[in-house]
Computed example of a mutant assay.
Amino acid sequence: MNHTLYAARLGVSRGLHEFRQGVASSDQWFNVIMALIFLTVLIFQRDATVDGTSFSLASVTLPSMLGMMVALGGLVGVSSQLSTSKEDGSLLRAKTVPGGMVGFLVARIVQVILDTLLSLLVILIPGVFLVNELVNAGITGWLTMLWIFALGLLATLPWGAIISSLTKTMQSTFGFTMLPVMGLTAISGIFYPISAIPDWLQVIAQVFPIYWIGIGMRSALLPDSAMAAEIGESWRQLETIGVLGAWAILGLLLAPTILRRAARRESGSALERRQNLTMQRATSG
């Protein structure tokens, strides 16, 4: 069997195993808490309607939240996992094993995909019962949601890996992912229609994937009459494919080179320096 394919198979198996371990761990309380927060927001939005439509604000917010979770999974999820792997030496160990880097990266990708999917289900399943408008999405809507999910991860996963490769500590990785994501979320029409914000902020939002994943999810789960609240009163699916595809292609072209350079910098002395720095921070804190 081809060594690369064998390493990839081992990576899939490892990713599945680590996902199952994560589901059984206390880390999943974060998903539960986030779901409760989001569902509370939806409850308060059920009686408000979107201007120009008869739809509740909750029915527009829920699909947008799902889009935000995809972006968080792709950017923050993979970057935090890679940063953790650098801190605990997993990346260095993978580098020393034939085919280890392939298996390592495949495992991270599999785990992030499954973690993100679980996060969506934790919000979507109870959300459907709260938001009646989503019940009639139909098979076409659910299929659209699947390709938006896949394309959204393709557009964000490589960039999460790139950011992690360029940063030295978990704290700096978090700062370069979570904070920009929250800022872009605020202007991307996730919690209220994007048409309500100034035009220049709308332009900025449309450059980045979060807006396009959000509108893609809305196009999947809402009827066409909800387009009245969108820019140009259109779901803009061709533009969604174009922008997310461009981010995916550029990220996939850049990520392998940057990841290889980051892996070459990994050494026992570099790991020791990071661990000493972490211990110093813990002691001083």
Results as ranks from 00 to 15, higher is better:
Val70Asn: 02
Leu124Thr: 06
Ser164Pro: 04
Asn136Thr: 14
Val112Phe: 13
Val76Pro: 02
Leu166Gly: 00
Lys168Glu: 12
Gly103Gln: 14
Pro126Asp: 08
Gly74Glu: 05
Leu154Gly: 12
Leu62Tyr: 10
Asp88Ala: 07
Leu143Lys: 12
Phe129Ala: 15
Glu87Trp: 14
Gly152Lys: 07
Ser172Ala: 12
Leu105His: 15
Ala161Leu: 15
Trp142Glu: 02
Trp142Met: 01
Leu143Ala: 14
Leu117Gln: 08
Ser79Met: 04
Asn132Gln: 14
Leu179Arg: 09
Lys95Val: 07
Leu151Cys: 00
Met101Ala: 06
Phe174Thr: 01
Ile123Gln: 04
Gln171Thr: 13
Phe176Lys: 01
Gly74Ala: 05
Pro158Thr: 02
Ala161Cys: 02
Met145Lys: 08
Phe174Asn: 11
Leu66Arg: 11
Leu118Phe: 12
Gly160Trp: 05
Ser119Pro: 00
Val112Asn: 13
Leu91Pro: 03
Leu117Met: 14
Asn136Met: 11
Val102Glu: 12
Leu154Gln: 04
Val78Ile: 15
Leu62His: 12
Phe174Leu: 09
Thr167Phe: 02
Leu57Tyr: 09
Phe174Pro: 01
Thr116Arg: 10
Phe129Asp: 04
Gly89Ala: 11
Thr173Asp: 00
Phe176Pro: 01
Met182Cys: 01
Gly138Glu: 08
Leu117Val: 10
Arg108Gln: 15
Ala161Asn: 00
Thr116Lys: 05
Ala155Val: 11
Ile162Met: 05
Gly77Ile: 00
Leu118Cys: 07
Met69Pro: 00
Thr140Gly: 14
Leu114Lys: 14
Gly100Phe: 10
Leu114Trp: 15
Leu66Tyr: 10
Phe149Val: 05
Leu118Thr: 07
Ala150Leu: 15
Gly138Asp: 09
Val128Phe: 12
Ser119Met: 08
Leu62Glu: 06
Val78Pro: 01
Phe129Arg: 03
Leu62Ala: 10
Ala107Gln: 12
Ser85Leu: 04
Ser85Arg: 02
Phe104Thr: 10
Phe149Glu: 03
Pro98Arg: 13
Gly160Glu: 04
Leu105Gly: 09
Thr116Leu: 08
Leu72Ala: 09
Thr177Glu: 07
Val70Tyr: 01
Phe129Leu: 15
Ser80Asn: 11
Ser85Val: 00
Ile162Pro: 03
Gly77Met: 07
Asn136Asp: 15
Leu92Val: 08
